[in-house]
């Protein structure tokens, strides 16, 4: 069968997407990660599943931010080590969807 060359997919940086979303950032984080548990985690599901790309392994260490959290809860469900403590931000803070 003839193979048609497909156009390479252009990936939009997640930051550009998050720029469209409204976040009222609370000073108190609503995500805590017990990062000791992440050191020997090979799968690091949180890094891949988070729709805001909040988790990253840098130099073997888990780094994360809570500010642009879309508040879905996927990270703590995906984490097999139960290393993510996740709660809703304070009422009135966090993400607000407007056009969805």
């Amino acid at each position: 069968m003839q193979q048609i060359a497909s156009e390479p997919v252009v990936m939009q940086p997640i930051e550009e997407r998050l720029e469209l979303v409204r976040f009222k950032v609370d000073k108190r984080p609503h995500i805590r990660v017990h990062t000791e548990a992440c050191r020997d985690c090979d799968l690091t599901p949180c890094v891949y599943v988070c729709p805001a790309g909040l988790f990253e392994i840098l130099g073997g260490e888990m780094h994360f931010s809570y500010e642009h959290c879309l508040e879905c809860g996927t990270c703590y469900v995906a984490c097999e080590r139960k290393a993510i403590e996740w709660d809703y931000p304070r009422g009135g803070w966090g993400v607000s969807f407007r056009a969805s």
């Binding site: 720029e19 469209l20 409204r22 976040f23 009222k24 950032v25 607000s96 407007r98």
Partner: peptide, 9 residues
């Protein structure tokens, strides 16, 4: 009452 800064695009 004013638009919250974070909501201004």
């Amino acid at each position: 009452q004013a638009p919250d800064c974070s909501s201004v695009y």
